[in-house]
């Protein structure tokens, strides 16, 4: 699947840019640290839009296309904003055999968005993830850092209600 590119306007602040430039300054001596810079940039902005990738490309002395190529290779990098509440459903084996696929499908229906999309109000975004290691709690999903385990489809409304 091609990575979804955000079409919402970029809202970076001068403070964020200053922080990014500091990170680049610390790493620019070694081009192999590109990914580390991108990871920290994503920590700052939440995603890696072209405005951010161009600063990284220029600062690290690599083509923008290379940064983009890397950003579309690794699942962790996002080209679109995350919602205020980012829901991630584990589709690892243990969770899958315990029905996490159902959870994922149902969430898409409830929220009216597809995978890696954000609701128009910016509240929820939804993605699937690989094993987060909470196999003992399977099936699990996370909302931001909160983990919900031993779930069934019936639990979803109650979980979402907490964030509405």
């Amino acid at each position: 699947m091609q990575k979804k590119i955000s079409n919402l306007p970029f809202k970076g602040t001068p403070e964020q840019e200053a922080a990014l430039r500091r990170i680049i300054a610390d790493n620019a001596h070694d081009k192999s640290r590109l990914m580390a810079v991108m990871q920290q940039a994503q920590d700052i902005y939440g995603y890696l839009p072209i405005e951010v990738q161009a600063i990284i490309a220029e600062g690290m002395g690599v083509p923008l296309e290379k940064v983009y190529g890397v950003s579309t290779f690794y699942a962790q990098f996002s080209l679109s904003q995350k919602g205020q509440y980012s829901i991630s459903v584990c589709l690892g084996t243990a969770c899958y055999v315990k029905g996490s696929g159902e959870l994922f499908n149902r969430l898409q229906e409830i929220l009216g968005i597809g995978a890696d999309e954000c609701t128009p109000d910016g509240r929820f975004s939804l993605s699937a993830c690989r094993c987060i290691g909470a196999c003992g709690l399977a099936p699990v999903l996370t909302v931001n850092d909160e983990v919900y385990g031993r779930l069934s489809v019936k639990d979803l409304d109650a979980i979402l209600a907490k964030y509405n």
Binding site: M1, P63, V67, Y68, G69, T72, F73
Partner: peptide, 18 residues
């Protein structure tokens, strides 16, 4: 280097950034 491999797997394609 304005073109390069983007995305991965069956959807890998050669193209420009974004």
């Amino acid at each position: 280097g304005v073109i390069g491999p983007n995305n991965r797997g069956i959807d890998t394609n050669i193209g420009c950034a974004f």
